[in-house]
């Protein structure tokens, strides 16, 4: 009886969605389309506690735009540096980080543990 309005679509609300990896995948797709060179760093192994787990990703492109987190903020700048080299050479690279638990918690960084990160060019 005229009650069927069907679908009302989602409006943009500026809500920050916690779908970090989806943002990374979008960025990769964009980079591929625009022909920009880009690398992705992926957490491939975690020993001990860590803020992000295996599969967490960070995107870096040739303009040094970063998207996504692979730790609680401790490793991102170092990984971004490594990613620049990977973008240039095309050679994938594995880096092992060993963060001392007492030391890192003491700094309030909240990302202790041993973390292995694989950085590869994806575009």
């Amino acid at each position: 009886m005229g009650l069927l309005r069907g679908r009302i679509t989602i409006k943009e609300t500026g809500v920050i969605l916690l779908k970090e990896n989806l943002k990374v995948y979008e960025a990769i797709a964009e980079a591929k389309e625009s022909g920009k060179r880009a690398a992705v760093a992926t957490v491939i192994k975690v020993i001990g506690s860590s803020y992000r787990r295996e599969g967490a990703k960070m995107f870096v492109d040739e303009t040094e735009r970063n998207i996504g987190l692979i730790s609680g903020g401790c490793l991102e700048s170092d990984v971004a540096e490594e990613a620049k080299a990977v973008i240039k050479s095309g050679k994938p690279f594995t880096k092992f980080y060993d963060l001392d638990e007492d030391y890192v918690w003491g700094l309030g960084l909240g990302c202790p543990g041993k973390v292995m990160v694989y950085i590869e060019r994806v575009s």
């Binding site: 009650l3 069927l4 309005r5 069907g6 679908r7 009302i8 679509t9 989602i10 409006k11 609300t13 809500v15």
Partner: peptide
């Protein structure tokens, strides 16, 4: 509609439909 609106449910998809028509919508 007065309840199921953007003001009450920001960021959601809202479907205005009677139970008898769920299957379709």
């Amino acid at each position: 509609e007065a309840f199921n609106c953007e003001d009450n449910f920001p960021g959601t998809e809202r479907i205005i439909v009677q139970p008898d028509h769920y299957r379709k919508h």
